[in-house]
Design a protein around this nucleic acid. Structure first.
Lengths: 114, 114
DNA sequence: AGCGTAGTACGATGGTTCTCGTATTAGCTA
DNA sequence: TAGCTAATACGAGAACCATCGTACTACGCT
């Protein structure tokens, strides 16, 4: 039996405003965040229907995770993504909600409604 | 008499979250914004005591202006900078204050106190 | 074992950004 | 006019970033 795969996440106290803002400055990454904020917690990467290739998608999810914006955990072959709302709000109160509120909900994100 | 120099600013309705977040993702630019927010409105570029060369400083102020974060207007040979607080709050409510609040006040920014 | 699915690793490419130094412009003042 | 100050223009270098395709790993299912 091999050890289970793990993913590195910064702790709440390590969250860095530079990294968080840089992560959220990209429209594709903001789209991911908005979808997570609008009730699509624990969705696999592939469910976000992003307009980029799989490898680029991996890249964007990794940037969000390393900045501490999302949490990713394995589940079978997939990865479940969730927003680190509480951590972000502790370190940078109001930031996430301001950005999510400024962004319109994503259209056509889910081809087959859940 | 030559026509007075002018500087291009985006209108409130043209403010774009991509550009604003990218502008605020840089620590030097955020330092400028924090100083402006903490009561140093209408300060000339040179008064910010930034740890970069003059040309780099010009670059950062231009990025902030073109993103619509600051307003710049000529006054003699200098440029007076001010935060576009109202515009930003209209388009992206709570964003600016969340970022300013997340950033500690700048130490040693003003070598000779005003 | 074999196959399919979800995601990663790697290398490459093209574009953007941060940084600088030097030369220059605009306005003020002596 | 000459000199000073504040800022810009321009060109260059280095670093970074988004994107892709291909090859690969890990897991679940049949």
């Amino acid at each position: 039996m091999t050890s289970p795969r793990t993913l590195e996440h910064p702790e709440t106290g390590e969250l860095n405003l530079d990294a968080v803002l840089a992560a959220l400055a990209d429209p594709i990454r903001r789209r991911i965040v908005v979808q997570l904020a609008h009730g699509h917690q624990d969705q696999a990467c592939i469910g976000f229907n992003l307009p980029v290739s799989r490898s680029t998608s991996t890249h964007h999810f990794r940037v969000l995770r390393q900045a501490g914006v999302i949490e990713q955990r394995y589940r079978g072959t997939a990865i479940l993504n969730s927003l680190r709302t509480a951590c972000l709000d502790e370190r940078f109160p109001g930031l996430l909600s301001a950005i999510v509120a400024a962004e319109p909900p994503v259209d056509g994100a889910l081809p087959h409604p859940v």
